[in-house]
């Protein structure tokens, strides 16, 4: 089995939708703790160096988010202390901590998502949704830097010609407007050539297929099925009220019914799966290298 990052991008995308979706709709201390730990562990497993600054900034953000709630909200029955005639309650504090943990875990997830999903993987996922959109995206990704480079070239040519760039702002501005307008012409002119080239290679003559370098293999299938099964357990537990948790006015206890336990276990598995896969790969490599 391959590491998490080498899975088919569509499977990775499904995983993120499941993991982040459940964490966001399920305000339950256990689920949130599992989500936070899992996302941090994946971040560490991806082995990004010099990330101390990021961890510290997330910690600071966590503290701020956690404290905002008890300062503004005074619901709850357990008053800890009173500041300026406003009671600070335990329930509001716990709610703040949970909400902050949820947000930080989502931020970590997004961080790892952008690390794993490079532009071509995203393109592939878009291509699965709509081949046309993915072609347009691919063309745009090519055209933007191309236009930027051409603008730079025109600007330096015009500088060495010294016609439009005078010493006053009005001349410079006039020059810039000209450059902008000629860039529009240039883009259209080149667009015609690109369109010709597309026609010449039979664009629009058949129903398009879409080629990608990513394959869908057995490990992808296993991972996908696991993802869906685990999420279904969670979603049904959520729908049946098995993992409800109320903060106000008094906190309900953490349910330990079989349904709730199944939900905790399945979300825990879901949350830690990627980090575990990555670590397994790392260990395997170490073992292989020591054998070589």
């Amino acid at each position: 089995m391959r590491g998490f990052t080498e899975l088919n991008p569509a499977v990775i995308a499904v995983y993120y939708i499941c993991a982040v979706g459940i964490a966001m709709f399920c305000m339950h201390p256990v689920i949130i703790t599992l989500s936070l730990l899992g996302s941090i562990m994946l971040f560490i497993a991806l082995g990004k160096r010099n990330s101390v600054k990021l961890h510290l900034s997330f910690l600071l953000l966590f503290a701020v988010l956690a404290l905002i709630n008890p300062i503004w909200y005074h619901n709850g029955v357990t008053v800890l202390f009173v500041v300026n005639d406003s009671p600070i309650t335990l329930e509001a504090l716990i709610y703040g901590v949970c909400a902050a943990a949820m947000m930080i875990s989502v931020l970590y997830r997004f961080r790892t998502f952008t690390m794993i999903m490079t532009a071509d993987k995203l393109m592939y996922v878009f291509g699965k949704l709509s081949p046309k959109a993915s072609l347009i995206l691919s063309m745009a990704l090519r055209y933007v830097p191309l236009m930027r480079r051409q603008t730079g070239k025109i600007r330096s040519t015009q500088k060495a010609l010294g016609i439009y760039r005078g010493d006053n702002i009005a001349d410079t501005l006039k020059g810039e407007v000209r450059i902008f307008s000629v860039m529009a012409t240039w883009a259209l002119e080149n667009g015609i050539i690109t369109a010709d080239s597309m026609d010449a290679r039979g664009y629009g003559s058949h129903r398009r297929t879409s080629f990608s370098l990513f394959r869908f293999t057995l490990p992808d299938g296993v991972f996908l099925v696991l993802c869906i099964v685990l999420s279904t357990v969670n979603i049904s537990a959520l729908a049946l009220g098995g993992i409800d948790f109320t903060f106000y006015p008094a906190m309900s206890g953490i349910s330990l019914s079989p349904l709730a336990c199944a939900a905790y276990a399945s979300y825990g598995l879901l949350s830690f799966m990627p980090a575990a896969l990555e670590w397994k790969e790392a260990v395997r490599w170490k073992y292989l290298i020591s054998k070589i």
Binding site: L135, S138, M139, L141, R142, I193, T194, S197, M198, L213
Partner: peptide
């Protein structure tokens, strides 16, 4: 330059 449609060689 202008004949190329996409952003990657394989594509």
């Amino acid at each position: 330059e202008q004949q190329i449609v996409t952003d990657k060689v394989w594509h």
